[in-house]
Amino acid sequence: MGFPLFYAALVSTQNNAQMFRLQMIPGDSFGFNLQTVLDRNIARLMFNTFAVASMVTLGKVVLSIFSGMALVYFRFPAKSLVFGFILAALMVPGEVTIIALFRLVALELGWGNTWTALIVPAVASPTGVFLFRQHFASVTPELSEAAQLDGAGPLQFLLRVLLPLSRNTVTALVVIMFIGAWNSYLWPLLIVTNPDLQVIQVGLSTLDDGVEIGRTWGPIMLGAVIASIPPIAIFVLMQKQFLQGFALTRHK
């Protein structure tokens, strides 16, 4: 299963000639490849991706917790309508609206080439709201009744009781959201053209050294390996919570 990425790691130490010779031992070009990706400012790309993905994840988690709480712990008219409004958005993949969204963000809002365009449209998350609503609904109502009897308001209840109880759900959501945000490609490709603001997924193909005819694969593969380290690390470390998160979405 892991062979393709293993091969990518191997190529990241080689030059084109070694790669096309099908050399199966590490080559001698690792230093050159590393220098190339550093010159192409991979550090900047990684930092940008980390910053954007973190802000998107944070925004999603916070908004989802509040919305999930509103849907479970409060009474208000048209609640099922509001929930339906959120659920229906869950069904629509971003690709369906991307052309109109591009027009809206770039033309009507004038956010082209900003991180705002990468972060703000992404933070309202129907998936997250759904996840937290299901989780909160599975928590026994006696807890919030007891909290009310003790005179706690909703915010106190959230901070003191609900959040400590929801650590697994929060972790699951963080893992899913962060990997999703880290790997997003199409939207930044469309809305950001300034290389200083760009994210790593779009920047990978610019890691070429531009000297050889065609692509120089060594630096690109090194970039691909570096770009894959954070999501794989998070995923492997938090596998259990991630799976629990998926189990949650299945229990309707």
Binding site: L5, Y7, P231
Partner: peptide
């Protein structure tokens, strides 16, 4: 399971 965490870009390039 870890290939699941790899982005479509890296999959395409590799």
């Amino acid at each position: 399971i870890w290939p699941y965490a790899i982005s479509g870009v890296v999959v395409g390039i590799v």
